[in-house]
């Protein structure tokens, strides 16, 4: 087995990086290069259509991949910082569109404190407290503070929205960073970063595959009142493609084999679809198509991480279940 890669930056060396991850990243870069070629060649091969969005999408992917690769290479601290920022921006997008009254301004200001507090439990490795912090304590305290302020119109709707935002944008996303905190003694073929890599690649591949299958073969609408562009063909084609991908590359990056691998391959693409559709329902209720214009070609951060809000906790909990029941 070759010795893992260590990068030396400014006199510090990074945690060991498994060669599987280097090859994995090379694969992602190869796919992105294909996308960039398509965006450059399509206007010449099939002119007359607007390919701006495709170009923007691919360009944004380069930036996102670079940020994620750098964070994973630098270790859990950098990954924690990156996802804390992602959680903050997603929460800001959500709280700005959620139903809120003028009296909620201080509640919203205070809600941002949940981001550093929640991520702090990951930094000091307090998993038990993390599990109950947002789902129990933030859930109880926020409505109480709202009651103290005294505005009861739309009270339940406002309190429920704030909690939905904290769970989706902060709590769920935090599980990605928890993967980086996996104890060294656990069997990991490509280290903790390999676990994150597989989750992110499978989730984003699923998004792209569902979209591509839907574009190519979509006929029968699957949830017309929520997501008019989603079709059964897209869902099934995406599900099969992603399940095959996880089945093929899963064992390289995560301790998955046999039945465990099959369960992960079957469930993760369903969770990705569920996250996508759930945020679509929220956006449809609010009356917007995208949560912001932060990422050119994609929309807001929350549009980009919608599937992850479901796949991250599912992936994390399946992994821990497999470890505890081996």
């Amino acid at each position: 087995m070759p010795t893992p890669l260590r990068l030396h930056l400014l006199g510090h060396s990074t945690p060991p990086i498994a060669w599987a991850l280097v090859w994995g990243l090379a694969g992602v870069v190869a796919l992105l290069t294909l996308g960039a070629l398509a965006a450059a060649l399509l206007p010449r091969l099939r002119p007359g259509r607007d390919y701006t969005e495709l170009t923007q999408r691919v360009n944004s992917w380069w930036v996102m991949v670079a940020l994620l690769a750098a964070a994973l290479a630098l270790g859990w601290q950098a990954t924690l910082a990156l996802f804390a920022v992602i959680s903050f921006i997603a929460l800001r997008e959500f709280l700005s569109l959620a139903p809120a009254r003028q009296e909620d301004r201080l509640i919203i200001l205070g809600s941002y404190l949940v981001v550093p507090m929640s991520y702090a439990w990951i930094a000091i490795d307090e998993y038990g407290i993390y599990l109950v912090f947002i789902p129990v304590w933030v859930f109880l305290v926020t409505p109480f503070l709202m009651a103290l302020i005294g505005q009861t119109r739309n009270y339940l709707q406002r309190a429920a929205s704030f909690h939905w935002g904290e769970v989706a944008c902060v709590y769920s996303i935090g599980f990605i960073v928890w993967l980086m905190r996996t104890p060294q003694g656990e069997p990991m073929p490509a280290g903790p970063a390999g676990l994150v890599f597989l989750l992110l690649v499978a989730t984003e591949f699923n998004d792209v595959a569902q979209y591509a299958w839907g574009k190519l073969f979509g006929r029968h609408k699957i949830l017309p009142t929520v997501s008019p562009n989603k079709t059964w063909e897209g869902f099934i084609g995406g599900w099969a493609s992603t399940a095959a991908l996880i089945w093929l590359i899963g064992p390289i990056f995560a301790p998955l084999a046999g039945l465990n691998l099959a369960i992960m391959a079957a469930l993760l693409p369903v969770a990705g679809f569920a996250g996508d559709v759930t945020l679509s329902a929220v956006k449809r209720d609010i009356g917007v198509k995208d949560t912001s214009h932060l990422i050119p070609g994609h929309g807001g951060i929350l549009d980009r991480i919608d599937s992850l809000t479901f796949t991250a906790p599912l992936y994390f909990h399946l992994m821990t279940f497999f470890v505890l029941h081996r």
């Binding site: 569109l97 003028q102 909620d104 119109r153 009356g287």
Partner: peptide, 10 residues
């Protein structure tokens, strides 16, 4: 504009 505004008083 996206509804980045407070719920108004009914």
């Amino acid at each position: 504009a996206p509804p980045q505004r407070w719920l108004s008083e009914p």
